Amino acid sequence: MTLAPSLTDAPVYDCRQVFAEELRALAREDDRVVVVCNDSVGSSNLGGFRDEFPGRLVNVGIAEQNMVGVGAGLANAGMVPFVSAAGPFLTGRALEQIKADCAYSGHKVVLCGQSPGMSYGELGPTHHSVEDLAWLRAVADLTVVVPTDRAQTRAAVRWAYAHDGPSYLRIPRFKVPDVIPENAEFSPGRAVILREGDDVTLVAIGTLVSRALIAADRLAAEGISARVINTPFVDPLDEATILAATETRGIVVAEEATLSGGLGAAVASLTGQHAPVPLRLLGVNGFAPTGSADRLLEHFGLTADAIHHAAREILGLRSSMP
Score class of each variant (00 low, 15 high):
Y104A: 12
P276T: 01
A220S: 11
Y104I: 14
L317Q: 14
R154G: 03
M79S: 11
A85C: 13
A75C: 09
R211I: 11
I193L: 08
L219Y: 02
A162M: 14
P11K: 04
V41Q: 15
V83W: 00
R150K: 03
A311F: 00
N38Q: 13
S84D: 01
G78N: 12
S44M: 15
G291M: 02
L194T: 03
Y120D: 05
A25N: 14
G165E: 14
G71T: 07
I307R: 07
H308R: 03
T201L: 08
A10D: 04
R56K: 15
S167C: 15
A306G: 07
I251N: 05
G48R: 10
I193S: 04
T207A: 15
A240H: 15
D305H: 08
E256W: 00
A288S: 10
D51I: 08
V12P: 09
H128C: 09
C112E: 06
G48Y: 09
I214M: 15
G78Y: 12
T303G: 02
F186M: 05
N230R: 07
L26G: 12
G316L: 11
A140C: 15
V144S: 01
L270A: 03
A138T: 00
E239T: 12
A20D: 08
G283S: 02
I98Q: 00
L263T: 06
A184T: 10
A304N: 05
Y120I: 11
A221M: 08
R24D: 09
S129E: 02
F89V: 08
L74G: 02
V33L: 15
L3M: 14
V83S: 03
H274F: 10
A288H: 05
A226Y: 01
Q114T: 09
R280G: 06
V284D: 00
